[in-house]
Design a protein around this nucleic acid. Structure first.
Lengths: 353, 353
DNA sequence: CACCTCATGTCAACCGGTTGCCAATTTAGA
DNA sequence: TCTAAATTGGCAACCGGTTGACATGAGGTG
């Protein structure tokens, strides 16, 4: 009840409002200052011991590391990011999380990032260029670099992003940007030789969305390979690259006179196969079907789907690897990396009976 | 070549080492200080105008917002997180990114988080309890809360994590932790009634991993429903809850005398169906097959797989919603939420012929 | 034994947004 | 018109780890 202690306590309380807040938010972790106190050194020595090897004597370093271990110390990533700008985080934006093509990309990027002690922030654009750009903008501040998987936005927008932070694009070739793209040619070559070897003379390609860069890549690859193998190739448009879209094209296929179909992706191929089988067409005895991607579930069908596998997990790994390398050694001129594709032969393709 | 300008420049360079660094790391964004200068107010006023509505006059607020827009200002999440501890980020750890069961969870959590302007950090534990715990520990520092989807670690470890930051568990019931769990009973009831209505008298349940909480849930639900419907139910163990595991059990099924099978998950069901069909058993004419989850691709099979759908996207949404609510209004006692399941009837189940 | 080099440790400013406290200003009420 | 109440604005400390500049001490050489 005397004035002095009370006022003294007030002053102290007023001087350190954050301590209260800190406890309230559960931020009770040890700091480098605690370590410094325990180890009897200066905080900055602790900082250097933990982040710059060689700057501190082995003995002191060991002392500090022991103290850190004893206090169960974990660096505060925000405190580290604030002055340095290094966030140890990668951003990944995919067009559609439920599209199985991206599962592999996500996994590859995540595992690669985790291996180098980077975190991965994931966002989805729901196939909308605007949402995609907005998500990228939001992310920019909190990541060291960005991976865009099958981006839907303009090339120019991508290049704008790349001016702020390193960007790697998967599944699309953008001038002046580091890209990771499946090289369809190897897989397509295998597919066409496979069909030619089984006596097919005419095939149909069911294309994807007309604006899709990938679809045109695949079609021109098929045309080239067919020319080489003296196979006639025609193109049929699909309204959407989905199972349903595949079903719809079945009628057109039947009338085309082709004995084999290559679809822009597995979903189309599966839909087509379902519809043909429902109409009592035998696959592959009457018609062979080949897809693209080798998505999860491509082997669930009866017969299993023959498909040109795009190793998306490898693309994710490669994209993250390129990005991490760029972060470590900036200045490299961006280039496009090609990931080999390969034909996975299952039951849906074979000899005509 | 005169001394004065040179030394002057040196001093300036020495005095502001961070500016150089800032440019090098691309951190060229506007700050609240830039806004303050442009709007002619104090930086703290800017801070309040942007984060605390009502603390600043409408006019000043508008002025500040215009300045912010003109400078294309984005808050620095690290600078905000450092003093407040609020990161506006949620962490999600899944056991296996390539397991299609989790796709829905990821999407649901991501969309819910994004809607409230939260970011989502994703990590995978590769089914390892140790890796899972390590990932969670790493994440703790950078997120406001954590979602654990089908965690593999001990209950106690989960509770330890929950002492640090709010935790929501999906697909498992942990005492004292907020959980989101599919309630299998509705779907199972529908499945058993469906089978009973088609005249089945004896069914087999192919169990999942023996340690799996979900598997025992499903089995006891099936037992109860079967008792009610006067159906005999027996259990067969599988070595792994995969397509291959399903194939292996086919022999056992054939010898069991049951006319219908319910598998712990869709992968098992699909493997079983493939193997039975390969041995010329007719599905569903000779045997009905029902799975669990309704994973991506469950409708790729011929016939399509009848399955008890676990709406994992809803689980992800619910988990993120619960977590965000907890962050806004702490103190709520954690409880378990149940998400309804439902039977999706496709071609793999029906009347015996 | 003095001098120089090099390794090691210390100091203090800094990143950018937040917030408790108090001063200044406006508005309302008497 | 003057005072009291209510807004609004400004100051400065603070979150925690990083880093350039400098001090200190140990080891090596002539």
């Amino acid at each position: 009840m005397t004035n002095l202690p009370a006022s003294d306590a007030d002053v102290v309380a007023g001087a350190a409002p954050y301590k209260v807040e800190a406890r309230a938010t559960g931020r009770t972790n040890a700091t480098i200052y605690d370590i410094a106190k325990l180890a009897g050194v200066n905080p900055s020595t602790v900082s250097r011991a933990l982040s710059k090897p060689g700057r501190v004597s082995a003995g002191t370093r060991k002392l500090i590391e022991e103290a850190a271990a004893e206090l169960n110390y974990q660096v505060n990533p925000f405190a580290r990011a604030l002055p340095t700008g290094r966030t140890n985080t990668l951003g990944l934006i995919v067009a559609d999380i439920t599209n199985p093509t991206f599962f592999g990309t996500i996994r590859g990027a995540e595992s690669t990032a985790a291996f180098r002690d980077y975190s991965l922030i994931l966002a989805e654009s729901a196939e909308s260029p605007d949402q995609e750009l907005a998500a990228a903008q939001r992310m920019l501040a909190s990541v060291d670099g960005l991976i865009l998987a099958s981006p839907r936005m303009d090339d120019d927008h991508i290049r704008d992003l790349a001016k702020e932070k390193p960007v790697v694009v998967v599944n699309r070739d953008v001038q002046g940007i580091a890209c990771v793209v499946p090289d369809v040619n190897k897989g397509i070559g295998e597919a066409i030789r496979h069909l030619a070897g089984h006596g097919h003379k005419k095939i149909v390609f069911i294309s994807g969305p007309t604006a899709s860069w990938m679809s045109s890549q695949r079609w021109s690859g098929i045309q080239q390979a067919c020319e080489w193998s003296r196979i006639e190739a025609v193109k049929i448009e699909s309204d959407s690259p989905t199972v349903k879209g595949g079903r719809v094209t079945a009628r057109l296929i039947v009338g085309s006179g082709a004995s084999a179909v290559i679809a822009y992706n597995d979903l189309l191929a599966i839909g087509l196969m379902q519809e043909l089988q429902a109409a009592a067409y035998a696959v592959p005895d009457q018609i062979s079907i080949i897809g693209f991607d080798d998505i999860f579930g491509a082997d669930f069908t009866t017969p299993g789907l023959t498909t040109v596998r795009a190793p998306m997990e490898n693309c994710g790994i490669e994209a993250a690897t390129v990005l991490l390398r760029t972060l470590k050694e900036p200045g490299e001129t961006p280039s496009t990396r090609y990931i080999d594709t390969e034909l996975v032969v299952r039951g849906s393709s074979g000899r005509l009976l």
